[in-house]
Design a protein around this nucleic acid. Structure first.
Length: 243
DNA sequence: AAATAACTCAACCGCGAGCGA
DNA sequence: TTCGCTCGCGGTTGAGTTATT
């Protein structure tokens, strides 16, 4: 796929601040078109897989750190009941949280909280969740999702919690909107569509990958509006889950 | 204060899907 | 159609930290 095949021996273990810096700098400048070539180009002795994981779980801008809120807990529980161990899908609904983080949290805390009654919960939980019900919640604007995994919300990665301040002056602010795809993090690497104002307006009906490189993102929609929008939709869905 | 248990977090591993040659 | 490769996901491990005895 045009990616250089790595040949060097790869370092393992914890990442040093210097490695983090190199990786972050490289991705900020060039994006992450090909993970396998990133560590080489960035001067790292890591493999692409490790670099990707480090970026996604730790270095990516906008990640929430710290304890999960009660609301987040409840959402995880509900979504886990609905989706099972689809951590990446569950992470869709928790902006700023990574699948790894959610997975860890589940294994060490929520699992215990649920397990005493898990047998009953898994069979006849508090509510019968279904993709159909989720789809109903999201309204009828899901015609684009036919055949795809039934993701009822547009998946906005990177920019949904992106701090614009962090990228002011940066040449490569990248956002990704994806719905119905199992891809989670890639952006420019997968044939990004250049986002026009019109496209932004209609990403609901034509969700896809979005690059905000070449226009003033804040001119189109403010960060807080965007986040509010998604949180609003998200909260609506979660409220519905508990009704 | 030391030992142990419990917990958290970051990272690795293996597998399957998708894509291009 | 097959093969090789990359990517992403889910499961698991292990080091480090905190709480308890």
């Amino acid at each position: 796929m045009g990616c250089k095949k790595p040949t060097q021996k790869h370092k393992k273990g914890l990442w040093s601040p210097d490695e983090d810096h190199k990786l972050t700098n490289h991705i900020m400048k060039h994006g992450h078109a090909c993970w396998s070539s990133i560590p080489i180009n960035a001067g790292l002795e890591r493999n692409g897989k490790s670099s990707r994981l480090r970026w996604i779980n730790y270095l990516r801008p906008g990640l929430k750190r710290g304890a999960f809120s009660f609301q987040e807990e409840e959402k995880i529980l509900a979504l886990h009941q609905l989706l099972g161990s689809k951590w990446s899908q569950i992470a869709y609904y928790l902006p700023g949280r990574t699948d790894n983080e959610i997975k860890n949290y589940w294994h060490f805390y929520l699992k215990k909280r649920v397990e005493p009654t898990s047998s009953s919960a898994s069979k006849s939980g508090p509510k019968d969740f279904s993709f159909q019900s989720l789809e109903n919640m999201a309204g009828s604007s899901t015609d684009h999702q036919q055949g795809a995994e039934k993701c009822i919300l547009p998946k906005l990665l990177f920019a949904e919690w992106l701090s614009l301040d962090q990228f002011n002056g940066s040449s490569s602010s990248i956002a990704q909107v994806d719905c119905g795809s199992s891809n989670s993090e890639d952006s420019s690497a997968h044939g990004l569509q250049q986002l026009s104002g019109e496209m932004l307006g209609e990403f609901h009906s034509k969700p896809n990958f979005v690059c905000v490189d070449d226009f003033g993102f804040e001119d189109q929609i403010s960060e807080s509006s965007l986040v509010d929008y998604f949180l609003g939709v998200f909260d609506f869905c979660c409220d519905e889950l508990y009704m």
